[in-house]
């Protein structure tokens, strides 16, 4: 009888564990063609990319954010301040556009708004440091503009970013 109890218990346990496993299915990498390399940093406890690599098309540092966050931390603020003379010069000659971006998680409409808040946070920092608000525009590209594609957390974190670019 003990063997019967054990068999029933084992079967029940197997089914329970099997059920749990089914609910934790990983997701596929469903968009090929993006650079999955170039990830030198990790991810902090807020989901922010910790690497210092990455520049925009105009050569300014990329600015990274935590999961669902649009707050610039001290390290990211310093990256902006390091670029400030060049950004100010570019704004003087033309115009600056800040592009906000997100990772692939979440629904796209929320992600577009989140990207916009990230861009707006960077704009506020530039304006607070003397760049005319009229010289800076913001736009969100949501999750449509990833710099890294892959399942690794650091790769996804690299997409939670803002880019500062010159507009001629």
């Amino acid at each position: 009888m003990k063997h019967t109890y054990f068999a029933i218990f084992s079967l029940a346990l197997t089914l329970l564990v099997g059920g749990c496993t089914q609910q934790r299915a990983p997701i596929p990498n469903d968009q090929a063609g993006f650079d999955a390399g170039g990830v030198t940093g990790g991810v902090d406890s807020h989901g922010k990319y910790t690497g210092s690599d990455g520049t925009s098309r105009s050569g300014f540092h990329l600015l990274y954010f935590g999961y669902n966050s649009y707050q610039l931390d001290r390290g990211q603020i310093q990256r902006v301040l390091n670029d400030l003379p060049q950004i100010a010069a570019a704004a003087h000659r033309g115009h600056i556009r800040i592009e906000g971006n997100c990772d692939e998680f979440g629904t796209d409409e929320f992600n577009y708004a989140l990207g916009l808040k990230r861009a707006k946070a960077v704009k506020a920092l530039l304006v607070n440091n003397g760049i005319a608000a009229s010289k800076v525009s913001v736009v969100s590209y949501g999750e449509s503009n990833p710099v890294c594609r892959g399942g690794k957390p650091a790769c996804r974190a690299k997409n939670r970013r803002a880019e500062i670019n010159k507009v001629p």
């Binding site: 708004a113 916009l116 736009v139």
Partner: peptide, 27 residues
Amino acid sequence: STGMIVCSDVRKDGRTLLLTMAPDGQS
């Protein structure tokens, strides 16, 4: 709209849209 614009719903009579806009960068 600056930043983003989305038509997220259309009233059944088609006369009114619900938009997400951010004219001042605020959705």
